[in-house]
């Protein structure tokens, strides 16, 4: 098992390296470099541009030098010094900007995925064991609509409803007074109060998807001979379903934790823009539009890293629950 995990991790390293290259190249794609536009921007704002300052920055990131040199400086900075570069727009080191946002994104995604499982698995099991019953039909229709409704549209609708029916603004993760406040217990409580609407919105899509997957997988398993064996033993039906077919039907679930996490983060990006949450999405959008390349690049790299880690977790989970895979390892 340990060897299996180590091997997975060893595959992960080159993957992350290539992803960092891809992220860097993508961020380099827009024409012009950011220092030129930065200087231009400062000039229009009437600031006196310190040529030395610009030159120092130019030197630091190797701008004007070949792309691979720039990449090398960027990645060694991250790996050796934890220096993610400088955000031009915020005039701050990137590392001071990203961690809080990343943490909030992870909290949001993690809670959403847990919520979606806690809701989806029992519903999926019910739907499959009561196939073609009226509740099954209703749940199927709801989950179909849920799959087809993108989160950001749902966010729009919920904002509209909350606005017109309750006069509430459901955007944001914090109340006004805690927005800039340092972290405290009260701020955490305040966040939890705001968290449930985005969680519900983000979880809806993946819940609906998970219901369909659970139902379909379980329907395949329910007719397998080993279920009949268990029934012929005299096991009570409920215990039987949860111990045998559900266990097997959930395996593909564990194997796709990584992907569903990626999907969740993906969908969360847009939902966060709509609801103006203090997560990665809106800041990344702004960084992209203003060509704040180190900030945008760091986000792309971090989100991909999260997915890679998610895949690792799902591989380990799968090996843990499925002896057949443990064997191969």
């Amino acid at each position: 098992m340990l060897g299996y995990v180590l091997r997975r991790i060893s595959i992960m390293v080159p993957t992350l390296l290539i992803i960092s290259i891809i992220s860097f190249v993508i961020i380099q794609l827009p024409p012009g470099d950011y220092l030129t536009s930065y200087a231009a921007q400062l000039r229009t704002m009437g600031d006196i541009v310190q040529q030395e300052e610009i030159d120092a920055l130019r030197q630091r990131y190797g701008l004007g030098q070949p792309v691979y040199v720039q990449y090398f400086k960027w990645i060694t900075g991250i790996l050796l010094r934890g220096d993610w570069g400088q955000s031009m727009e915020w005039q701050k080191p990137v590392r001071d900007l990203i961690w809080e946002r990343l943490a909030l994104t992870m909290v949001l995604s993690g809670v959403s995925i847990l919520v979606s499982w806690f809701v989806a698995i029992p519903i999926g099991v019910y739907s499959a064991t009561h196939q073609y019953s009226i509740p099954d039909y209703i749940l199927s229709i709801i989950s179909f609509v849920g799959v087809g409704t993108p989160g950001f549209m749902l966010a729009l609708v919920i904002m509209y409803v909350a606005m017109t029916a309750f006069g509430l603004n459901v955007g944001g993760l914090f109340s006004q007074e805690y927005l800039a406040a340092p972290w405290s217990w009260a701020k955490v409580v305040d966040m939890l109060k705001h968290l449930w609407i985005p969680v519900l919105i983000i979880a809806l899509g993946s819940t609906a998807g998970s219901i369909r997957t659970t139902r379909a997988n379980l329907l395949d398993e329910l007719n397998k001979p080993y279920v009949e064996t268990a029934r012929a033993k005299g096991l009570p039906e409920g215990r039987l379903v949860w111990k045998y077919p559900v266990r097997v039907a959930l395996n593909p679930f564990f194997s796709t934790v990584g992907w569903s996490l990626a999907n969740l983060i993906s969908g969360e990006t847009l939902v966060s823009v709509v609801l103006s949450l203090q997560t990665i999405g809106p800041m990344m959008l702004r960084a992209l539009t203003s060509q704040d390349m180190y900030l945008a690049g760091s986000f792309l790299l971090l989100l991909s890293t999260m997915t890679v880690l998610g895949t690792l977790v799902s591989d380990i989970l799968l090996a843990w629950v499925d002896p057949r895979i443990r064997m191969e390892a």
Binding site: T15, I19, I26, A262, N263, I265, G267, T269, L288, A296
Partner: peptide, 21 residues
């Protein structure tokens, strides 16, 4: 394929389309 799928699609799309002049 695995590599491409590792990058969350919407952020990737966002970054790429931001690069369109």
């Amino acid at each position: 394929i695995e590599l491409i799928r590792t990058i969350p699609s919407i952020p990737l799309w966002m970054a790429l389309s931001a690069a369109l002049p």
